[in-house]
């Protein structure tokens, strides 16, 4: 029986201007044998949650540079709850100040990967997290 194929949504909520980091992560996950659903810039929390459900992903990765992380993560988690899909784990990356991380973890974000993170660490973390 071959290993189950992991499907990961990489999305950028809000008004960020570029998505280079998200693309680097998407590419790294692809090279680790995962299927990456990539939805590009300026997604709303609603569209992210709908996509996660339709694509039946194993995890959602949100990249946020704008500073609106506290609001956006919370909103996505709320919507997942409403849809009965709060079993889909969320991780994040981008520019998130250290002092905001405890709050994000408290509301249910599994992990925040800051600038300079090695992509191999992200791959390893996702494999471990989804290996329920």
């Amino acid at each position: 029986m071959p290993e189950r194929k992991l499907r990961i949504l990489i999305a950028k909520p809000g008004l960020d201007g570029h998505d280079r980091g998200a693309k680097v992560v998407a590419r790294a996950l692809r090279d680790a044998g995962m299927e990456v659903i990539y939805t590009g810039l300026r997604q709303t929390p609603e569209s992210i949650v709908e996509t996660a459900i339709q694509e039946d992903v194993d995890a959602i990765g949100l990249s946020i540079l704008s500073g609106a992380h506290n609001h956006l993560f919370k909103k996505v988690i709320e919507l997942l709850n409403n849809e009965g899909a709060n079993d889909i784990p969320i991780f994040g990356g981008g520019i998130v100040p250290e002092e905001d991380i405890p709050y994000l973890k408290h509301i249910g974000v599994k992990k925040i990967f800051g600038p300079g993170t090695n992509t191999e660490d992200i791959v390893a973390y996702i494999k471990e997290m989804t290996n329920k």
């Binding site: 996950l29 090279d31 044998g33 990456v36 990539y38 590009g40 709303t44």
Partner: peptide
């Protein structure tokens, strides 16, 4: 990918206007 078995599924990017339409289901 024939080498890693991975894939980037990016067709949805062009279909943004229908993401939250309850009567459209898109699967990559």
């Amino acid at each position: 990918s024939p080498f890693t078995g991975g894939a980037i599924l990016g067709d949805r990017i062009r279909m943004k206007s229908h993401y939250t339409d309850r009567d459209v289901f898109i699967r990559s």
